[in-house]
Amino acid sequence: MKYLYYNGLKFTRDEDTGYYLNSSIGKRIHRYVWEKEKGAIPKGFHIHHINHDKSDNRIENLELVEAGKHHSYHGEIRAITDYDNMIKNLDEVARPKASEWHGSAEGIAWHKKQYKATKDKLHEKVVLTCEHCGERFSNIKRTRFCSNKCKAAWRRESGIDDEVRVCVECGEKFTINKYRKTQCCSKSCSNKHFPRLPQLKNMIDS
């Protein structure tokens, strides 16, 4: 509906926002109703439509909500109900404009200025302690290990890459690094399941 009436005043629907406004008093109907029924609206608070219907301005459908929580709530609702349009807007409008600006003379100048202001901090070395060997070392970025060797050793010892497999020979479960191709739980099972391998090895050795 285009118009709503309350307390002898006429409120007209704003097609952009969906709210009803009386331009003479400069107030939206939901705020006006709250003030008439409940009193002044505290600073930093909004009036929320409980059923999300902006034409339903009964006092039972209105509640006082902190502005920050109100913005967050409606942001979450939009993300759920209008997700496709939000992504479309990002892909077709926001990202192209951002890319265009970053590649413009103004954008390049801004990046150069930011780099100049932070380059010393970016290349500043910090003293760290290796989580595997305990040795202290310095690096321009925060890392947990002094070398790839220590990183690999830590991963092996921690078992972070381990997985449980079932032996193809005896059916028992065993734990093995997920990057290894081992199919048996032991050499004994491997020799039973792959009987030609020991023979081939003997032939090669002889």
Rank of each mutant, 00 (worst) to 15 (best):
D161M: 04
V127Y: 03
E157K: 06
E66F: 00
R156M: 02
K97E: 15
E100N: 14
T118N: 12
C130N: 05
H132V: 12
H74G: 05
A98F: 09
T129L: 06
E135W: 04
D162Y: 14
K97T: 12
C150H: 09
S72L: 06
L122V: 10
N61Q: 08
A152F: 02
E100W: 05
N89Q: 15
R156L: 03
A105P: 00
K121A: 07
E157C: 03
N139S: 13
K116P: 00
W154K: 07
S138P: 02
L62E: 02
S99Q: 15
E63W: 09
H102I: 14
A79F: 02
E135D: 04
C150K: 11
G68S: 15
N89G: 14
Y115L: 12
K112Y: 01
V164M: 02
D91R: 15
A109T: 10
W110R: 09
E63C: 09
D84L: 11
A117N: 04
K141S: 07
R136G: 01
L64T: 01
E157Y: 01
E131S: 13
P96R: 14
H74W: 09
E169P: 04
K119C: 10
K113M: 14
A79N: 13
A79T: 11
N85H: 14
H70G: 07
Y73C: 00
S147E: 02
D161T: 09
E163K: 08
R78W: 05
G103K: 13
M86D: 08
K116I: 03
C146V: 02
E131L: 15
V65R: 06
R144A: 11
V164A: 04
L62S: 04
E106G: 01
G68H: 11
A79C: 03
E157M: 01
E124G: 04
I77D: 01
K141G: 02
R165Y: 03
D84Q: 14
P96N: 10
S158K: 12
E124H: 10
R95T: 15
S72N: 05
K116T: 05
T143K: 14
Y115P: 00
